[in-house]
Nucleic acid binder design. Structure first.
Lengths: 108, 108
DNA sequence: AAATTAGATCAACAAGAGTTGATTCATCAA
DNA sequence: TTGATGAATCAACTCTTGTTGATCTAATTT
């Protein structure tokens, strides 16, 4: 067990939630934006040109998938990307790719 | 340019299509099954206990995402997993994770 | 040629996801 | 305390996905 890999492996269910959350152009934009650093919602709406309730909806999807995290401060809510989530997904994908690399069985 | 990485990087659109295709429990089952080697559709319906038209629908989604490939032989159609697709997605994800690892900018 | 069989496709429906505008709640400024 | 602002939530609606059973086509067997 390497010192850099302390997270328990993703369950298929969580992996699917992450995949689904990321499979949307708008949400990917949000991810990329937050990749550049924490943002408050009002900045995001401006940056991405979205209606407030629309953004809120997508933030919820990302939040529930564990991809982002909210922190409230005063009147604002700041969101940041949970890069652990991306890592977990990477590991899960690697595991899947491994599993699927087995020698072909014949078709019976 | 490494000798092992000859595929052009995925476009965001293709990546999203892969993510979406994989974000479904049934389709993941198909992927895992094909990971064990090529199968014909009739074997898959048996193995997964699915109605023929239902499986056909999901195979189409996977096919259009580039995750699987069909080969017809006589009366049967054999599907195999395109492991390149999994690799491409891994690289794309790694790229995203990298891009999102930049030092936090402040919230203006 | 007629009967089977594998698998795609289609039409009708059911379920789920995304959008929009209105409402609500909390915090901050006057 | 009143007024304004940030952000979540809700209800109504639309759009997209998924399901089911039926039909269709091509290859195969008899």
């Amino acid at each position: 067990m390497g010192a850099l890999e302390h997270n328990p492996p993703l369950q298929a269910r969580q992996a699917r939630q992450l995949l689904r959350a990321m499979a949307d152009p708008l949400r990917l934009q949000v991810i990329e934006a937050l990749g550049g650093g924490e943002r408050c919602v009002c900045d995001l709406t401006g940056e991405l040109g979205l209606a407030q309730s629309k953004l809120s909806f997508h933030l919820k999807v990302l939040r529930e998938a564990g991809l982002i995290e909210a922190r409230e401060q005063g009147r604002w809510i700041y969101y940041r990307l949970r890069s652990e989530a991306l890592q977990d997904l990477q590991h899960w994908l690697a595991g899947l790719a491994d599993r699927c690399d087995q020698p072909a069985r014949g078709c019976n």
